[in-house]
Computed example of a mutant assay.
Amino acid sequence: MSHQQIREALAGVTRHFEQHPELGPTTDSTAVATWQGGLRFQTAGPNGATLVSEMPKAVGGGGSAPTPGWLLRAALANCNASMIALRAAQSGIALTRLDVSVDSDSNDRGMLGLSHEVPPGPLAVRVKVRLAADGASAAQLQELVTWAERHSPVADALQRAVPVSTSVEIG
């Protein structure tokens, strides 16, 4: 889609939710991870979407697919990039370049339960954005990134304590 088509679509959905705010809350699509043996999983989602993850050989996996941690970083990179592109289209800015990279620091001792003081997840996450747009100032481009970071659902989920509940079905 062109940035104009994105802009028009966003205007329509924005009008819809301004007129019907009660329709905003929703249950997101379910992701179902199915064990494929060892430490490999295939996750199914909406419209036939699938992804595969596998742990590295160092911990007993086959190393044939990205790890769940990498998929988390990829989700953050894709979500932030999507929100930047969305805001650029809303603002009438035609991007000529957009790359978002995400890396993190972790301590595997936490994941393996070797230290109660070390969390199992990332200790720090870094996002790097490279973008350009003809006719847009550096301040305008920075504002796109700032806005996107405030509105990225994945960034929000990583930064805010989100309640997680687990139910277990045996058999």
Rank of each mutant, 00 (worst) to 15 (best):
G48Q: 00
T27F: 02
A49K: 10
F41H: 10
T50E: 10
E54M: 01
E8G: 01
A77Q: 08
H16S: 07
R73M: 15
P46S: 13
A58G: 00
A75L: 08
P21C: 06
T30S: 11
R40H: 05
W70D: 10
Q36S: 11
A49D: 07
C79M: 09
C79Q: 09
A65G: 02
R15E: 14
Q4R: 11
G69C: 06
T26E: 08
A33R: 09
G69D: 12
V13P: 03
T27D: 04
R15S: 15
H20A: 15
P21D: 07
M55E: 15
S82D: 06
Q4P: 01
Q19N: 07
S53A: 13
S53F: 03
P66S: 10
H16I: 00
A74W: 03
V32P: 04
L10K: 10
K57E: 12
N47S: 14
S64V: 07
S2R: 01
P66R: 02
G63V: 06
P68D: 12
R15C: 00
L23G: 00
W70N: 07
V32E: 14
T43Q: 01
P56M: 01
H20S: 13
T30P: 03
V13G: 00
P68E: 13
P56I: 02
Q36L: 15
R7S: 15
S29V: 10
E18V: 15
L76C: 09
N47C: 07
M83W: 09
A11Y: 06
A44F: 03
F41N: 10
T67V: 03
P21G: 05
A77P: 00
V52E: 04
A9R: 12
A9G: 04
A74E: 08
C79Y: 06
T34G: 03
Q19S: 10
G37T: 03
Q36M: 14
H16C: 02
W70C: 02
K57P: 02
G48A: 02
N80K: 07
L51T: 13
S82Y: 03
A44T: 12
Q42E: 15
H20R: 14
N78E: 14
G48N: 02
L72D: 05
R73H: 12
N80T: 14
S82E: 05
A77Y: 08
A58M: 03
P21V: 06
Q42D: 11
N47R: 15
G38D: 06
P25A: 06
M83E: 12
R73I: 05
N80A: 13
P66K: 04
A81H: 07
A31C: 11
T43R: 02
V59C: 02
G45E: 09
A33H: 07
Q42Y: 00
P46V: 14
T30W: 04
H3A: 07
L39N: 01
T27C: 00
E22T: 07
